[in-house]
Write a protein that binds this DNA or RNA. Structure first.
Lengths: 117, 117
DNA sequence: AGTCAACGCAACCATATGGTTGCGATTCAT
DNA sequence: ATGAATCGCAACCATATGGTTGCGTTGACT
């Protein structure tokens, strides 16, 4: 078993970005952002794709931990698991913060440490 | 010319996520988050990949608008263009906000509109 | 002028990805 | 019990992706 197919999330940043790096999956995330759970049939109803294609995308999101699924009767219902989104955001924050302070230091260097005008 | 290969960024959210959905490219972004520009030789020095592989990854980041490059003498120097990161963040914020308020409404429904308890 | 460093281009290869279709199984409703 | 809805599995296909190597070009240094 590779560490990626456990039932709980694999909070690898690159994997999360990759899971979101697809128009269809991004659309699915948007649809699921209403907090409720939706069946596969429902989620694939308004798309030009086949049900199987949508199913695959949902499984990709699930493997990334962005979504969870349960079987209810004859349908599989998916709901958003928004915690990994925070993971992504914190990564972006780290990069941006590093960039900002680095830029600050560079600016100081350019303007001269003595601060002459 | 497809709208993706203009010199300025193509702020397609899915494309941005896809560009970041790779360990190597994420590492490159981290290295470039120091605000300076780095040559290809420098960026590929500490990696197990070939220079050409790193070059490709940099071009992917550039096509997504996350990075810009200029030719200086005999080397190509890349620097981070962090604006698209804000684009991504705003997308995540929208999804999270939608999820939060939807969850709030659902909770109200469950607890009852009259607020008994 | 000669040499080395850094790079771009192109060919090539293996695998991952995104899509389809067919089919069988389970579940719900009549 | 029959039938339709919903889904999972598997086969199959085309293309994208990530990687390598070889080679030619340009720029810097002596």
């Amino acid at each position: 078993m590779s560490r990626a197919d456990r039932h709980c999330s694999a909070p690898d940043a690159a994997a999360l970005f990759a899971a979101l790096g697809d128009e269809t999956r991004l659309a699915l995330v948007s649809e699921l952002s209403d907090g409720r759970d939706h069946s596969i049939a429902r989620l694939s109803a308004d798309k030009a794709l086949s049900r199987q294609a949508v199913t695959r995308h949902l499984r990709v999101l699930e493997a990334a931990g962005l979504v969870s699924s349960i079987r209810i009767g004859r349908e599989s219902r998916f709901r958003l698991t928004p915690e990994p989104l925070g993971e992504i955001r914190s990564y972006l924050d780290r990069v941006s913060a590093h960039w900002d302070e680095a830029l600050g230091r560079l600016k100081l260097l350019v303007e001269g440490p003595a601060g002459e005008g």
